[in-house]
Design a protein around this nucleic acid. Structure first.
Length: 901
RNA sequence: GGGCGAUUAGCUCAGUUGGUCAGAGCAGCGGAUUUACAUUCCGCAGGUCCCUGGUUCGAGCCCAGGAUCGCCCACCA
């Protein structure tokens, strides 16, 4: 606890607190008698640094967990990182490259040592940043997907799946990244709309295959057909073509079926086959078939027993091709090949073509679909129960629309390629006996001593490692001890809430559900909240390549983590995207500052009184009779706010929760209650109690959103017998007995009258210190009595002199009168304003404005300006012109009024 | 080719089941400085709630159609 200075300095407060929180293990949770509440943190990539997406994600989770913790739940939030196989390996390889080394130079073992070294040194960055953000994770439980226990879980689930026949190895077309030189799952190879070309290639027909065409491509109409034209976006793959396919019902090609074409440049004979898979509408209706490099062609190859010719190496160079192309990069080969074909007149035409091309999600290299021997997980049997679980609402999505997205993906799920040709990761627990046939595999958690079949000790482990997600999908239970039995697992599983971004639904959410049901026979969590994407003000996703990143750590440095959290959370309605700019964080900072200062004020009023703010009894029992209307009003507002914030947090409406707390604290408490309180006798213990109580409660109410400032301030105002930290203080209860419709109505009336008087004074530029007498006229007797009571408050808040309350009061000729809620507010004006002085002031201002208007007019009439200057500059000038005109009119009105006085 | 979301004040956005919902913040403008807070206070917003129909006593809010923008999914080479 520190002395509260006049300036709020989030940096100092936050720095101190977050280190305290960490060392005191305040967020540690063990199974006990309380109801558990568990939240699953998406383990961030170990190479990652905190970006806005993380900041939003973790702020939301932290709000949830702090909210539940205060509600008395045994709240557990297990933090950690995943090993991010490809990304981490890339990082370390880059490091090596600076030393002129490749990973192969070190060898597998040494390379892995380097990666571990790197992990020890840098892998903690994001964890540290999450702490700085205020995340109240159980840091003692921090896990890493390569930890011993989690690794065991990976091997265990591999074996279980294998034994159930759900893991298999086979040659299929997979997504290959030639840069990372590994296979990728479909999810890791997102498709991007790409402007490409569609090349129309002529494949000559073997003599005797030619014939007259009926309505084929126009060029060959009525001529003896000498060739068939195929269209392709990846011409280089033609070197691996082993057939040409057409649709069986396509009249244009009917008589070509069974004939033979010649592959240009190579000279290979290609059978012309018929298959329903061919779309007669696309291209020429004839398609080249490259079974080793395209998923559809692969299928064709299988059905028609074609040859599979792989024409590319692991790094995307050509192989098994004519000499002049051997060893060329795939795109270089494409260029040269097209040039040659064109020279030979074999390139019929080139058309622009928009298509979706897979890109590596780690390095953005264009994916090469390629035939390769890999391990796969059979997904359909795993997906079925996962679909059921969601359909039966054992898991619910918020917003609900994501349910459909999830179900749609699950229903069309493809098998999952899980082997990766990298070194950093969980090595596949499979061994091959060198003496037995190659397809004989031994699946084992630990290296088997000898082949169970032939007894040979010459065994070799599979070289590949597993997809990182193959360990992440076990996170909800592997972090709690699975496959071992544990108290934690019994107590905390299934967990309650998962908070994540939409792009993670397929990668992780869906797979966790499948893994949970498979391994634990229960869902891993009950609610999934999908928040939005963080975007800049133009709606673009924040990304390094666009250069529109706002660094959360930067914001924390400038405005504080509380400000960051507040602004992020108020900028997003349930499940909508978050649009932010740097200025928006000022709002959060100002709010923290406001809290700081109002606390200072409350503490200062108490000083010297018998009332003790810190340690005052709570819940306090006040006699309703002793409360003023303002007291009753603010207590009522407080109760409403508590109910609303609680309800909002229950339904993930974080923006509404934050907004409600903001309105209560700033608009109601600071702007009105505190101001009113200044009028009353400082010795009023009732008032001091209300001030302290409302402030203290509001701090608790806001704590999940702004943990640092609320913790610090709460230490100064907490009631006797409170816990050491606001984090474990009870969540505020909405006291029904404080709900007070009458007080709310009366105080609203009071505010309306004050505002009306302020308006009148402001309109006429009555100096603040001038206190005009005011008459309030109304027929309602109760209202008259009320204002009689409120006279002193009215005088201070509206800065007025005598207040006359009556019925049917006469309005003097030179008085201003406004009616609010049936009350006529009469402010006599004569003698209030030094008319001459005011007239001079206004005239001077009018002159200034007139001159400015003149300048603007000249400018706007200048064609050079209006036509050549940037549009927004011109618009700005126009806008300014309107403003000036408006202001001038206002002043003219004032002048007229002054004349009439 | 499917699916989803958005369209409300100059800007960024709220508006839970249709009836004080036409709002907030920022920007702008006019004013205030012996103040808990200038990271402040007071006052000022007339915006066809994208368009067109429909349901209803009544619609930003429900329905149908359309427009614009954005996102996701899909093996048309």
């Amino acid at each position: 606890m520190v002395e509260l200075s006049s300036r709020y300095t989030p940096k100092d407060v936050e720095e101190r607190l977050y280190q305290q929180w960490e060392s005191q293990a305040l967020f540690h949770a063990e199974p006990d008698r309380r109801a558990p509440y568990t939240i699953v943190i998406p383990p961030p990539n170990v190479t990652g640094i905190l970006h806005m997406g993380h900041a939003l994600n973790n702020t939301i989770q932290d709000i949830c967990i702090r909210f539940r913790r205060m509600q008395g739940a045994n709240a557990l939030w297990v933090p950690g990182t995943d090993h991010a196989g490809i990304a981490t390996q890339n990082v370390v390889e880059k490091q090596l490259a600076k030393e002129g080394l490749r990973r192969q130079d070190l060898g597998r073992e040494q390379f892995l040592q380097r990666v571990w070294q790197w992990k020890e040194q840098y892998g903690n960055t994001i964890i540290r940043q999450l702490k700085r953000l205020g995340s109240s994770c159980d840091w003692q439980r921090t896990r890493f997907t390569m930890d011993e226990g989690l690794s065991e879980a990976v091997a265990e689930v591999f074996i279980r799946l294998y034994e159930k026949g759900l893991i298999y190895r086979g040659n299929y077309i997979i997504n290959w990244c030639p840069r990372c030189q590994t296979a990728l799952s479909d999810e890791e190879a997102p498709r991007k709309e790409t402007r490409g070309k569609l090349y129309y290639l002529k494949y000559p027909l073997v003599q005797g295959s030619g014939f007259k065409v009926q309505g084929g491509p126009r060029t060959s109409n009525l001529e003896p057909r000498t060739h068939v034209v195929v269209a392709t976006t990846r011409p280089e793959t033609m070197l691996g073509d082993t057939a040409v396919a057409v649709h069986p019902k396509d009249k244009r090609y009917k008589s070509l079926i069974g004939k033979t074409a010649i592959l240009p440049l190579v000279g290979r004979e290609l059978k012309i086959i018929a298959d329903e898979a061919v779309d007669p509408e696309f291209g020429t209706g004839a398609v080249k078939v490259t079974p080793a490099h395209d998923p559809v062609d692969f299928q064709l190859g299988k059905t028609h027993k074609l040859e599979f010719i792989n024409v590319m190496t692991d790094d995307g160079r050509m192989t098994n091709v004519p000499k002049e192309y051997e060893g060329l990069d795939r795109f270089e080969c494409r260029k040269r090949l097209l040039a040659t074909l064109e020279g030979q007149g074999m390139l019929e035409k080139t058309a622009d073509h928009l298509h979706a091309v897979g890109h590596c999600y780690r390095c953005d290299t264009v994916i090469e679909p390629r035939l390769s021997l890999q391990w796969f997980v059979k997904m359909k049997p795993l997906a079925q129960p996962a679909i059921e679980a969601v359909k039966k609402k054992r898991i619910t999505f918020t917003p609900a629309r994501w349910t459909k997205v999830y179900l749609n993906w699950m229903e069309h799920i493809q098998d999952w390629c899980i082997s990766r040709q990298i070194w950093w990761g969980h090595r596949i627990p499979v061994y091959y006996c060198q003496r037995c046939p190659a397809d004989r595999v031994i699946v084992s958690k630990t290296p088997p001593g000898k082949c169970p079949k032939c007894g040979s000790t010459n065994l070799k482990q599979d070289e590949d490692v597993l997809d990182t997600w193959f360990s992440s999908w076990l996170w909800p239970f592997s972090t709690l001890g699975w496959p071992k039995k544990s108290k934690d697992l019994d107590y905390f599983y299934p967990t309650d809430t998962l908070v994540t971004a939409p792009e993670i639904i397929f990668f992780w959410v869906a797979r966790m559900i499948m893994a949970g049901l498979f391994c634990m026979e229960d869902v891993p969590f009950r609610q999934v909240y999908i928040h939005g994407t963080v975007r800049d003000l133009t709606g673009k996703k924040m990304s390094k390549s666009l250069g529109n990143i706002i660094d959360p750590l930067d914001i924390i440095g400038q405005f504080g983590a509380d400000a960051l959290r507040y602004t992020l959370v108020t900028s997003t309605a349930v499940g909508t995207d978050v649009f932010i700019s740097e200025e928006k964080f000022v709002v959060g900072r100002n709010f923290a500052n406001k809290l700081w200062n109002v606390t200072r004020y409350v503490l200062s009023t108490v000083q010297g009184s018998r009332f003790k703010v810190q340690g005052h009894p709570s819940p306090f029992n006040l006699e309703p009779r002793t409360l003023s209307v303002a007291d009753r009003w603010i207590l009522s507002r407080l109760s409403h706010a508590i109910a609303e914030v609680t309800k909002a947090l229950d339904r993930y409406a974080f923006n509404e929760a934050a907004q409600t707390a903001y309105e209560l604290i700033w608009r109601d408490f600071c702007d009105w209650y505190v101001e009113v309180s200044k009028v009353r006798s400082q010795k009023s213990e009732v008032q001091l109690a209300v001030l302290a109580h409302v402030l203290e409660t509001a701090l608790r109410l806001l704590h999940p959103v702004m943990p640092f400032v609320t913790e610090e301030l709460w230490q100064h105002v907490k009631p006797a017998g409170s816990p050491a930290s606001i984090m474990t203080a009870p969540w505020p209860k909405a006291e029904k007995r404080w709900l007070d419709a009458e007080a709310e109505e009366q105080f609203a009336l009071f505010k309306a009258v004050v505002t009306a008087i302020r308006n009148t004074k402001a309109e006429l530029n009555v100096p603040l210190e001038t206190k005009p007498p005011v008459q309030l006229s109304t027929k309602r007797e109760a209202v008259r009595r009320f204002f009689e009571d409120q006279r002193p408050f009215l005088q201070v808040l509206a800065q007025v002199g005598d207040v006359t309350v009556g019925e049917g009061l006469m309005k003097p000729r030179d008085a201003s009168a406004t009616v609010v809620d049936g009350i006529e507010v009469i402010v006599p004006l004569s003698g209030l304003i030094d008319a001459a002085k005011e007239r001079r002031r206004i005239q001077a201002r009018v002159q200034e404005l007139t001159e400015e208007l003149g300048r603007l007019d000249v400018r706007l009439k200048d064609r050079q300006f209006t036509q050549r200057a940037p549009e927004d500059v011109v618009n700005q000038a126009k806008q300014r012109r309107e403003q000036v005109t408006e202001t001038l009119q206002k002043f003219t009105g004032h002048l007229q009024l002054l004349e009439s006085l």
